[in-house]
Design a binder for these strands. Structure first.
Length: 475
RNA sequence: GCUCCCAUCGUCUAGCGGUCUAGGACGGGGCCCUCUCAAGGCUCAAACACGGGUUCGAUUCCCGUUGGGAGCGCCA
């Protein structure tokens, strides 16, 4: 059996799109699974929409996801000569012919046919005219035999095909001399030795026409597999306005590439009841047979769950490396890495869905001065708790060993000394005092992570705050 | 409008004629744990779109209906 060669062929018209990324992932997984190669080809023949920056964005996105290609990136635009050559050979062998119908004429005839209740395919006006080079401005059309068998066995949809009569003689070269997408794709796939064309189901209707080109070229088409589209909430088409669709966006939101890949691979593909797949599992288990035929909605909830799952699994040094940029953006300053910070991040991974959230939750530890949430202060920093808070500040200040267990012991002493105060009564005020809010990891762990000096300073500052508001109230 | 495609809990899905009183996961409810928030454990609710066939037997096969999607460019 010959080598498995798949390709990812995006058009560089924006950022790496969610659906494109999944197609890339499927192609990559399929190639890896079978010891084959993935070829990256940029379909940039639409000059108006193609931009070099978006090509870079696609490469970056793929690299970030860990999808490595083996050959390319090739640019379709750089292969124009080869496309022209193939079209010329098709004309020479009378498989294609020149057509001088103008767009206006075509449009008019089309409207007339439709108005008369007919179905429009090219009416073949120039089909047998045998027009030569000198016929003036013209396009080139592929001659489609009426009885041609344009069917194929799709890797996902099974037996597929369309009646040749439904297709009509399609244009393969524009009047400006450039090849059209369908030919360019066929020629490139052929030249690049692609064995499996795995692409979005939006290409499903294109396939019969491409098969006609393979037939005209008298070559065997590759295997086709069309993967169902990803749709947005409500089963509607993904919209750039409503749905987040760019991989870069997810990256900026603090999602891990492992989570994105895992999420995407399970959209339309499954392996029994398994939900979590490492990159190794993806590339050893992925299988076209198990790809679904119906389109899938992208569920953000599952995505968040997966992201937290991977966050929890990340080795400490990697977690730090991932969060640091987000944390520095959060506080808008360079952040010094301390053991306390590392400890806090470790506690935070169980409480964060994304790196962005984690950075927000770690903020209190790296800033010099915190802002205390007013509502939290009103609820928890009341005069009644001030005495206990003072004793705690004292007890903590005297601690020689700033460890979680010593801090806990200090708490217990203070609690006992204040009439068996419940720990919750003291923990919340302290939490507000040191983090500015009501939410944090366990209070002993949080205090330990924050550090001796900052912790005591913040508690004392909170006590002063309580006293001053108490005074202003009695006025 | 025409061509093609799809249809299991809210969502992603398992199921490839009897094992289905339909399984898992996310999300949701409840309980436990608990210094807050999480995490974790246990638990509950939740689906075969509808109508005809085929068959001893249909979630599974066939045909319609309905609903959704894609394509119908001198775009890719």
């Amino acid at each position: 059996m010959s080598e498995i060669r798949t390709r990812f062929a995006p058009s560089p018209t924006g950022f790496l799109h969610l659906g494109s990324a999944r197609t890339a992932l499927f192609n990559w997984a399929y190639a890896r699974r079978h010891g084959g190669k993935l070829i990256l080809r940029i379909e940039d023949t639409d000059r108006l929409r193609s931009r070099r920056e978006s090509e870079e964005a696609i490469n970056d996105g793929l690299r970030w996801l860990g999808i490595e290609w083996d050959e390319g990136p090739f640019r379709q635009s750089e292969r124009a000569e080869r496309h022209a050559e193939v079209i010329a050979s098709l004309v020479a062998s009378r498989q294609a012919y020149r057509c001088r119908c103008t767009q206006e004429e075509l449009e008019e005839r089309k409207q007339r046919t439709i108005a008369a209740g007919g179905k429009w395919t090219y009416d073949g006006r120039c089909r047998d005219l045998d027009l030569g080079e000198e016929c003036g401005p013209h396009t080139v059309r592929l001659r489609i035999r009426e009885g041609a068998d344009l069917s194929w066995n799709d890797g996902v949809f099974g037996h597929s095909g369309q009646d040749a009569r439904e297709i009509g003689d399609m244009i393969i070269r524009r009047s400006d001399g450039n090849a059209l997408f369908n030919v360019a794709v066929v020629v490139d796939d052929l030249d690049m030795g692609i064995s499996h064309v795995i692409r979005g189901a939006d290409h499903h209707p294109n396939t019969p026409f491409q098969i006609a080109i393979y037939q005209a070229l008298n070559v065997e088409p590759p295997q086709f597999a069309h993967v169902p589209l990803i749709v947005g909430t409500g089963g509607k088409k993904l919209s750039k306005r409503r749905d987040p669709v760019s991989i870069q966006h997810f990256r900026a939101e603090g999602y891990l590439p492992q989570a994105v890949c895992n999420w995407l691979i399970r959209l339309g593909w499954s392996h029994g009841d398994q939900e979590v797949f490492s990159a190794e599992e993806i590339t050893s288990l992925f299988d076209l047979e198990a790809v679904n035929r119906s389109s899938a909605q992208a569920d953000p909830g599952k995505f968040q769950w997966l992201n937290q799952h991977y966050l929890k699994q990340l080795p400490g040094n990697q977690l730090l490396r991932e969060v640091l940029p987000f944390l520095e953006a959060e506080v808008d300053a360079k952040v010094e890495v301390t053991p306390g910070l590392e400890r806090l991040l470790d506690l935070l991974r169980e409480r964060s869905k994304t790196l962005v959230e984690m950075a927000q939750q770690a903020r209190f530890l790296v800033v010099d001065a915190i802002e205390i949430d007013e509502k939290a202060a009103r609820k928890h920093l009341k005069p009644a708790i001030a005495p206990a808070l003072s004793s705690l500040a004292e007890a903590l200040d005297e601690l020689g060993d700033w460890s979680e267990s010593e801090i806990e012991a200090a708490f217990e002493r203070v609690l006992a000394a204040h009439g068996d105060l419940k720990i919750g009564k003291l923990a919340q005020p302290v939490r507000v005092a040191i983090t500015g809010g009501t939410i944090s990891p366990g209070i002993f762990e949080t205090l330990a992570a924050l550090g001796h000096e900052k912790a005591v300073r913040r508690i004392r500052a909170a006590i002063r705050g309580v006293e001053s508001t108490a005074e202003s109230r009695t006025d």
